[in-house]
């Protein structure tokens, strides 16, 4: 039976700082397969929390529940004063405008140019925005990721790393307070992966965003995390800084760092 234990003082920090995301007693299963079992997590403003777990352990299910792409079986997910599973679509859309989501597959719209990809969330969330404002924001977001020259390209014309950066620019364009990253370095070569991680760190420092990163890339975990949460057997098995967990003797924790 896995035991939940905390290995660092971040929980003390959570008590003193503003909690922007609070997950309590979250359960999610697909038929007989129990994916999340009494999962609990608090995210403090400005934190970069990495959820580490094996493939198929339910990491992606967790962030899809947070953004309400999946409905949990039970439990609460509190964000911006609302319990996500209980709210209506119009309130959910307002919350989603404050939460960025970087998809594992980038999820760029194939039939749209880079400009249209970036304009899409702006047009949908901020209906009254003018074309001049849209152009300025698209330009700013692309410059942020160093790809202003690709504005009229189609996603298929770009490399994997460039597509990831464009997806990040699309996530940034609404100036989100929380960014959810689903395996941001999967499928990238080590150099490009490092560039993406550095970009994520830069974004957090510049915009003081809070990030929840799903990953099993240890390089990403080490570089990007201010706290690591280990998702084992559907629940939060351990939590602490990278170094604390790396030096832990628990065999289930140790296997990730060997």
């Amino acid at each position: 039976m896995p035991k939940n234990f905390s290995l660092n003082s971040n929980n003390d920090k959570a008590e003193s700082s503003e909690t922007v995301l609070s997950i309590e007693h979250l359960y999610k299963s697909f038929g007989a397969n129990k994916v999340l079992v009494d999962f609990n997590l608090d995210l403090v403003r400005g934190e970069n929390v990495v959820v580490l777990g094996k493939s198929g352990s339910g990491k992606s299910v967790l962030i899809k529940c947070i953004i309400s792409l999946l409905n949990p079986d039970s439990g609460s997910i509190r964000m911006f004063g609302s319990n996500i599973p209980d709210i209506k679509n119009d309130v959910l859309d307002k919350i989603r405008a404050k939460v960025g989501f970087l998809f594992q597959s980038n999820a760029l719209y194939d039939s749209m140019t880079v400009r249209e990809n970036l304009e899409f969330p702006l047009r949908r969330h901020w209906i009254s925005v003018t074309q001049r404002q849209v152009n300025a924001m698209v330009q700013e977001a692309l410059e942020e990721v160093g790809l202003a020259h690709t504005i009229d390209s189609m996603p298929a014309e770009l490399s994997g790393g460039m597509r990831k950066r464009i997806a990040l620019a699309r996530t940034l364009i609404l100036k989100p307070e929380i960014i959810l990253y689903d395996e941001p370095t999967t499928g990238l070569d080590p150099i490009t992966a490092k560039e993406i991680i550095n970009l994520m760190i830069e974004i957090r420092e510049r915009y003081t965003t809070t990030s929840l990163i799903i990953s099993h890339d240890m390089n990403c975990v080490r570089m990007a995390s201010s706290r690591v949460v280990m998702l084992i057997d559907g629940s939060c098995y351990a939590s602490g800084s990278f170094d604390q967990l790396a030096n832990n003797a628990d065999p289930k924790v140790k296997q990730f760092f060997e």
Partner: peptide, 11 residues
């Protein structure tokens, strides 16, 4: 390719 999910997240 999760584009439908991305659309949903975009309001």
């Amino acid at each position: 390719t999760e584009q439908i999910d991305a659309m949903e997240v975009s309001g």
